[in-house]
Design a protein around this nucleic acid. Structure first.
Lengths: 339, 339
DNA sequence: AAAACAGCTCGAACCGGTTTGAAAGATCGG
DNA sequence: CCGATCTTTCAAACCGGTTCGAGCTGTTTT
């Protein structure tokens, strides 16, 4: 059942039927109801490709997965994607996932030229992220999850990583900790940099120094969390508290602490950032982990909404948000043992 | 730059240019080269929507994420999706991800009516999976990752879960184990059922009984792995070996074993199934985990290829594969302690 | 009563490709 | 040299929507 057939059935023109279904005001209300009723009865859904061709809008958002890298192996990104797809659905859009085998840049170029998507979604922003410039150069709009320090203005949603770490450090220093390690994700990520800034400023404010040796960047895996923690605990001035940038890092961190014969809470404190993945819940740790929390899935959903607003003609300057982070106190953060 | 403009530049008709670029034989070879050269120079890419409208093919594969559930929280699914997107890219297709807020079935119906995708991809097949019937009823082709026991014929790719578990059990019984637990994923999953069958048959062949109490189904999380293992170790006849259906279950399993003061390898053996996620590598365990291995990412890529073949008109009956599973021996499987 | 106007509806053009059927030009056998 | 055949190209129709501009009512304004 297509538009022409539906119009014939109703004894109307394609024009009127199309307008009736798309909510134009010139259509008689009675006619509109008749049309809507018929559309429902005949199970009519406009052909997406035709609609896109006619409107010039693709009705889809794009995400490029760098094929070679293992970004998707990252469950946090997966969860973000789920939120994104969910939000896109709510806005009546679809999500185009493109994993290019010929390099990320080629993927963007292809999508742009083929007018396959209305907006590109970028996540895991780097400190210096070339993709933003590339896209604006290609004439593709973009919405990002995360933000860079530069002066470029683009719609984005970000978590206040800096503040989250700051508050976590405040909590720990308040409990009496003086040597606080930061077990971080990849150093080139903007989020990692923001966390480092928060760590520095919070320690500075207390008159403590952020020892460079207590900052350990690396992949956000259990493995790196374990190794980093082992390394840190072997230092002559081992830290009494650990901030982990993800739950996976925290898993490894906790395992390392256990392997060293220490007890979390009593001997060493741990605070992790929790993105809200169902598979790694802080309550499942022993003891339950104190966390900074922000749902990455919700963030994905909101990014989709921002993208929809952008397509709808909203001013890009109005489409940026920074979400606060919750600090949730559980048992893994306690006062340090008396030295 | 669109087809008409390109044709004008070349002094040719749209027809000829289109055919030259799409490899039709009636075009003069010299002309074809001229056209291809010009297309490259002007950076011409056909408009996807127009192409789709004209051909009736959408050029995309569809994946529906059940919005309410947390399938995406599952990193294994994320990795599968990455492989899928990668494979789709290699075949010149795109991936349409649809997370419906109004229920999975509604999502399929919408995609079918709007002719948004050529083939649907299904993963995480249930023992009784209604989606397959629904799709064939909607006239949508499908390729699945996983297979059900029923008599329906559909293109699929599956891992030989049954054989993997059988060989793992054989290894353990060969080492002298007699009580072998199966820490499984969700019971309604077809893969879980296949694993259970493998467990039963391998034990039967050795004249051992598969105790119902040693089968623990649940979500494929660290948490469930931990709880299940604690429960099992508290049994009067505690198992001496554990088979874990995923690396996450294995993480929890190992933690539980450690918490009970036991040592993996010496006191208790563990074999896990490894889907090849970069974040949870068996070598990172202490001791390194013996695993059955099969890359879920490669599987995703292959599923995309099968889907492309299906669109290309291949006989659906020829498009099914079952991949063998590697058994990789490491240190976590040893002979049981002498009772 | 003529002019202006608002409310609905419609035919036709358009989006940018693919594909059909016809035709022009080249090649060839007789 | 002519008709048959093959090669190559083209104009026009088509896919299924959206949208512009015009036309046809009937009501209000002057």
């Amino acid at each position: 059942m297509n538009l022409r057939e539906l119009a014939q059935h109703l004894g109307l023109s394609k024009t009127t039927v199309s307008r009736a279904l798309n909510g134009f005001s010139e259509v008689n209300e009675e006619t509109r109801l008749r049309v809507q009723e018929a559309a429902r009865r005949f199970n009519y859904t406009p052909n997406i490709s035709a609609k896109r061709l006619a409107t010039g809008e693709s009705g889809a958002f794009g995400v490029v997965l760098p094929g070679a890298s293992s970004e998707m192996a990252d469950p946090v990104f997966g969860e973000f994607l789920a939120g994104l797809a969910d939000g896109a659905g709510r806005c009546g859009r679809d999500l185009y996932v493109n994993a290019t085998f010929d390099g990320e840049e080629a993927g963007y170029r292809r999508l742009a030229r083929a007018k396959a998507v209305d907006v590109m979604i970028l996540a895991n922003l780097k400190v210096e992220d070339l993709r933003i410039r590339l896209l604006s150069h290609l004439g593709l709009q973009a919405v990002t999850c995360g933000r860079t320090a530069g002066s470029l203005v683009y719609p984005h949603l970000d978590i206040d990583h800096e503040d989250g770490v700051r508050r976590a450090v405040d909590l720990l220093t308040g409990l009496g900790h003086r040597a606080i390690a930061l077990v971080s994700g990849p150093a080139d990520l903007s989020a990692s940099e923001q966390r480092m800034v928060g760590w520095h400023t919070a320690l500075d404010r207390r008159g403590l120094t952020a020892e460079a040796g207590l900052f350990m960047a690396g992949p956000a895996t259990e493995d790196h969390g374990y190794r980093a923690t082992r390394t840190l605990l072997a230092l002559p001035t081992a830290p009494t508290a650990f901030l982990c940038a993800s739950m996976f890092l925290a898993s490894g961190c906790c395992r390392a602490i256990g392997d060293c014969g220490l007890k979390i809470g009593r001997d060493v404190s741990v605070i992790a950032h929790d993105d809200g993945l169902a598979t790694v819940r802080p309550e499942a740790f022993e003891p339950a982990l104190t966390t900074t929390f922000s749902s990455i899935r919700s963030a994905g959903g909101r990014v989709a909404e921002l993208a929809a607003a952008l397509v709808g003609g909203a001013d890009p300057a109005d489409l940026s948000e920074v979400w606060p982070v919750d600090l949730i106190f559980r048992d893994s953060a306690q006062a340090p043992p008396r030295g």
